[in-house]
Design a protein around this nucleic acid. Structure first.
Lengths: 151, 151
DNA sequence: CCGAATCCCTGTCGATACTG
DNA sequence: CAGTATCGACAGGGATTCGG
């Protein structure tokens, strides 16, 4: 692998600012009962960790989709999980559900303003993941060769 | 490509940029086998969705911690999960593990440069979650009263 | 003090079949 | 077309115990 050019010159008041904010958050969280379910971040992260949530958000970010359109866009998802994930997102106000009373009923899902506001941090994460992929893969192989050397 | 006159009165070019980037990503993903395990984003998101990963990252963002210090900082975590999550993070090169050969052995964990670079997008997400909490909670209660009205 | 191995319960997800 | 209901498989993760 190539030398890591971007890793050397380091932080960035941005990192410091991020750390400061996280410190404040952590302070608040640990002040209370430390009940994770109370933390709004947990709810968000749990959802993003769900297998399909982010994918659906991304699909709906492109344009509104109908139920079957999403299924076609994400072939591996089952009806069950699609319905469930869609409900969760609707429940949290991230997506809107419009029913058209046509003969074969059709339903359109779209991002709400709140859902659109999620795109920015989500994109930041996606961008980071892609940019960091080489480093992560390098770390993984390094880790595995290291553990293979010690047994 | 967008002719969407959606509901937004906050149509930032940021949202448009985010959507464009996500569209590009989605394009690439769906071009291949759509194998989710190949997607670097999945690996990242799955980890963040894990129950303890983000918390540990935040704790280590404050300053390096020893094993037992982390346990004290996050009382609810078990030794098992702490060890496991720490190893996963180390494997991905996000944290570093230093062993001190003191009389009772002690181990210090700290964020690597790569791990620090995660703080920025992570903080963006945390900030979003906190800012959106009122809206999400309002949506939830609205949703519940709505479903209570149509049983 | 740190971590690996075992047991077991729980929630989550997939496949299938059925309603409006 | 859109959604629900039920079942079974599987993995996440908590408690405990043993090893360095």
């Amino acid at each position: 692998m190539t030398g890591l050019p971007s890793d050397n010159h380091l932080p960035d008041n941005q990192v410091a600012a991020a750390r400061a904010r996280l410190a404040a958050c952590f302070d608040v969280w640990s002040a209370g009962d430390f009940d994770l379910s109370l933390c709004p971040v947990r709810g968000v992260l749990d959802h993003l960790g769900d297998k399909w949530t982010t994918l659906i958000v991304i699909v709906l970010a492109l344009r509104p989709h109908r139920f079957s359109e999403i299924r076609r866009a994400i072939p591996d998802i089952s009806k069950r999980m699609l319905t469930q994930t869609l409900r969760d997102l609707e429940r949290d106000g991230l997506i809107a559900r419009r029913v058209f009373p046509t003969k074969p009923p059709s339903v359109e899902y779209s991002l709400t303003a709140l859902g659109q506001s999620l795109l920015e941090p989500l994109t930041a994460l996606v961008t980071w993941a892609e940019a960091s992929r080489p480093a992560i893969e390098a770390a993984r192989t390094a880790f595995e060769t290291a553990e293979a050397a010690v047994p």
